[in-house]
């Protein structure tokens, strides 16, 4: 144990030395923008989104986001695969659990009934307005999943229909890839922004960005919900 500590402290010292030598070369707070100048100056005109981060995430670097959505999909599927249990065993386990789990308190139940639709609405607002205000599909999806988590806490016995969750997940993933392939057909580039850009700073603008963000919002929200569901030990 002791030698392990000494070795690890030596490794950490080497790492720390590396950090000091490299960080001192990157001046903090100075303007070092290079490629991003293009995004800042041309972004609104070329993508129609006033939120430049969104236009970078979904247009200039849209391929990363496709990968990112895929990573989350893998996590949800992988979680399902690792925690998969046969149905028969599952029923037995849940029966014994039922005796132990108490009902949630009245305040929690009433409060979450009241809050749940509002949370969903807020999540939807965040991902629909991703190209106008801070936020977007991932943030909105996380908010939606938190609403579902609240419902799980308030009503531990009820569970969501996993099949519909997985259908929404795959459909929204397909929409994202499909838009990419449509871009390839219409303008020759995968994931290109082939729809009309509209007037910037209005809801119906920025071409494919809102559509993708709505799909991403649904996908992330339902994926995180199914992750919560799996981790609660409900299985299929």
């Amino acid at each position: 144990m002791r030698t392990r500590k000494i070795i690890s402290i030596i490794i950490l010292l080497i790492l720390a030395g590396g950090f000091i030598l490299t960080f001192s070369q990157i001046p903090f707070g100075k303007d070092k923008i290079n490629v991003a100048h293009y995004y800042i100056s041309k972004g609104i005109e070329e993508t129609g989104a006033v939120n430049i981060v969104t236009s970078v995430v979904l247009n200039y670097r849209g391929f990363d986001t496709l990968g990112e959505v895929t990573v989350l999909f893998i996590a949800a599927i992988g979680l399902g695969a690792v925690l998969f249990t046969e149905k028969r065993v599952q029923k037995h386990a849940s029966k014994s659990k039922d005796d132990k789990t108490k009902k949630a308190s009245l305040i929690l139940r009433t409060g979450s009934n009241l809050l749940f639709p509002l949370i969903l609405l807020f999540g939807a607002y965040i991902f629909v307005h991703g190209h106008l205000t801070p936020g977007g599909g991932f943030q909105g999806g996380a908010v939606i999943a938190s609403g579902f988590l609240l419902m799980y806490l308030a009503f531990p016995k009820q569970s969501i229909n996993k099949k519909s969750l997985s259908v929404v997940e795959s459909l929204s993933g397909l929409i994202f890839v499909g838009i990419g392939l449509f871009g390839l057909i219409f303008s020759g580039y995968f994931l290109s922004n082939f729809l009309p850009k509209g007037i910037p700073n209005t809801l119906f603008s920025a071409g494919i960005i809102p559509i993708i963000y709505i799909a991403v919002g649904f996908k992330v929200g339902f994926e995180l919900t199914s992750v919560i569901d799996d981790l609660l030990g409900r299985g299929k």
Partner: peptide, 13 residues
């Protein structure tokens, strides 16, 4: 060399 999204490199993936 294919660009994803239709911009010239180095501005897009």
């Amino acid at each position: 060399v294919v660009s994803i999204g239709g911009w010239s490199p180095p501005f897009c993936i």
